[in-house]
Amino acid sequence: MTHRIGYARVSTDDQELALQLDALSVAGCLTVYQEKASGKDTERPELMQCLKALRSGDTLVVWRMDRLGRSLSDLVKTIADLEARGVGFESLTEKIETSSATGKLMFHVFAAMAEFERNLIRERTQAGLIAARARGRVGGRRKKLDEQQKKEIKALLRDPDISITEVAKRYGVSRTTIYRNVEIENLALPENKGS
């Protein structure tokens, strides 16, 4: 016997699941897994339980596709995994379902368009970086410490009464930044004091 199993998610405690639950009920889902978790969270225990409960011939139903995937690539991977297990997928809002040939085609066109968009963004980014380099600009983060500051820090740390923590506060950086950017191996540091 096949089942239509629903999954509903909202991102914050302030949001309500009622709209999704009503739509999933009307769509014939007798079982609905629900949770309040950000779509960016990798830990979504209810979704994991839902995916485990699905059997070949079942259909996973969501109110909207973004309820299921953290990103488009994540969504495509999840639906491909379901398809490999013989489980259908249906999104009520987008009217996409993968149990028919037309639905599968629509989903794959959608996924291909998303891949195309990602490639365009990558190409534009690369072109922008090349153009910036041609004008003498280098990408990446601005360095937290310039060469003059590194020399000053090195001089300060020669004083046995000054700790790395004090210097880091003075320059508005972390101790890690100082360790990464200033050669301090041969300096005698009072590090346990004031750290």
Rank of each mutant, 00 (worst) to 15 (best):
V76L: 05
S38I: 10
T42V: 11
R85E: 08
I162P: 04
E97P: 06
K52E: 10
T176M: 14
G194N: 14
L72V: 14
D13E: 15
A84F: 03
K52Q: 11
S195P: 00
I96D: 00
F110N: 00
V109R: 00
K144L: 15
T12E: 10
R55F: 10
I153E: 00
G172N: 08
Q20N: 10
T165S: 14
N181D: 12
I178F: 13
D14N: 15
D41I: 06
S99C: 04
E115T: 11
L68E: 01
E97Q: 15
R85K: 10
T98D: 08
V182Y: 11
E97T: 15
E147Y: 04
E46Y: 13
Y33K: 01
S163K: 00
K36V: 08
N119Q: 11
L47H: 01
E46G: 12
H108G: 05
A8T: 01
E147C: 00
L54T: 02
M48S: 11
P160E: 09
S195F: 06
V26E: 11
G136R: 07
Y179T: 08
V182I: 15
S38F: 04
L47K: 03
T31R: 08
A23G: 01
F116C: 05
M113S: 12
G69S: 07
E117C: 14
S38G: 12
N119T: 08
D66L: 04
L145I: 02
I164L: 15
E115M: 09
D146L: 02
A127T: 09
V138R: 10
R180Y: 11
V76W: 05
E152A: 09
D13W: 10
F89Y: 07
D13R: 15
D146E: 02
L120H: 05
G139R: 04
Y171P: 11
G6C: 09
D81E: 12
F89S: 02
F116G: 02
I162E: 02
M113A: 10
I5N: 00
S73K: 15
S195T: 09
L21W: 00
T12M: 03
E152M: 14
A111Q: 06
G172Q: 01
L47Y: 02
T125Y: 09
S163V: 09
E183G: 11
R4K: 14
A84V: 07
D14I: 13
Q126P: 02
V32Y: 02
F89G: 01
N192K: 15
V10F: 07
G128S: 10
E46V: 02
L30G: 14
R67N: 06
G103I: 03
Y179Q: 06
T177C: 12
R158E: 08
V167D: 06
E117T: 12
V61I: 14
I184G: 05
L92A: 03
Y171T: 08
N192Q: 15
L24I: 04
E46C: 10
P190N: 14
K40Q: 15
D22M: 01
R44Y: 07
I184T: 05
Y7L: 03
Y7C: 01
E117I: 12
T59R: 01
K193N: 03
A84G: 09
A53Q: 11
L51P: 05
I164C: 14
A101T: 13
Q15M: 04
A131R: 13
R141Q: 03
F116P: 04
T2E: 12
